[in-house]
Design a protein around this nucleic acid. Structure first.
Lengths: 129, 129
DNA sequence: ATTATTGTATCATCTTCATAATACAATAAT
DNA sequence: ATTATTGTATTATGAAGATGATACAATAAT
């Protein structure tokens, strides 16, 4: 499984996002052990230094904890994990609507697009501009 | 008006996106004249070379046309502008749902979040997986 | 004709990011 | 005790992006 890292922005921050995703989505359970720097670097096909930098960031956010010579673990603070998850989600929603507005889409137009792509919500009332 | 450019990814590509936005949202009308490289570079507080690079990209996509010594204009091809606009929007929707799924949000959960943030859609029927 | 403005090209320099190659201290495993 | 694995730090090198400083050709404006 490749990690499909782009060249459009720093690899280390792509790693941070990816690992965040994997943690908050439960792919790495709370308290669970993470692969070593060298190991994960090999899997992701990046330099250990780059992976180290990514881990350092995740540590500053409190999502993972380090044991000097025994590797890293996901925090056991489930509440914090969920907080971060909710935060990331809120960010996504915010960004999405901001971008759509910049593109000149009213909220209703945006909703229509959502319906086209994924038929799930129903907006069957009829106001329009 | 600052251009709030981040340091997380290349400035020139941020300029490209911003200009795309301004064009497809009608802020620069079809056929309308664009500021000169130096002028816009001054406004955005970036180096003229960087703005030039951004313009070059917009030209490759056909969104703007260049007159050797008389500046640049937005294309008059309204259809293409709308195509690009629709494309960008579709991209946003796609990216949004992909990211939310990576965060472990089912579509219905995502919808709930949308409702919290912007109370507009109604999903009152009750199928579920 | 002259001048100013346009896009465009080039050069040097600086910063950030990524890689590579090590090295070291602490400790789990043996 | 020894070995292997862990996180961490250091140094050097290269590539990409951004800036600054010019320079030139074409042409609109005068």
């Amino acid at each position: 499984m490749a990690w499909d890292l782009g060249t459009d922005r720093p690899i280390y921050s792509q790693l941070v996002e990816r690992l965040q995703m994997q943690i908050v989505s439960g792919q790495y359970p709370p308290g669970g052990k993470l692969p070593s720097v060298r190991e994960l670097a090999a899997v992701a096909a990046v330099n250990p230094n780059t992976m180290q930098k990514a881990f350092a960031e995740l540590e500053r956010s409190g999502l993972i904890v380090t044991q000097r010579t025994n590797g890293r673990n996901v925090t056991e603070d489930v509440q914090q994990i969920q907080d971060i998850r909710a935060n990331l989600a809120k960010e996504q929603v915010d960004t999405f609507f901001t971008r759509m507005k910049e593109l000149g889409y009213a909220e209703r137009e945006t909703l229509e697009l959502l319906n086209e792509k994924h038929c799930m919500s129903n907006n069957d009332e009829g106001e329009q501009e």
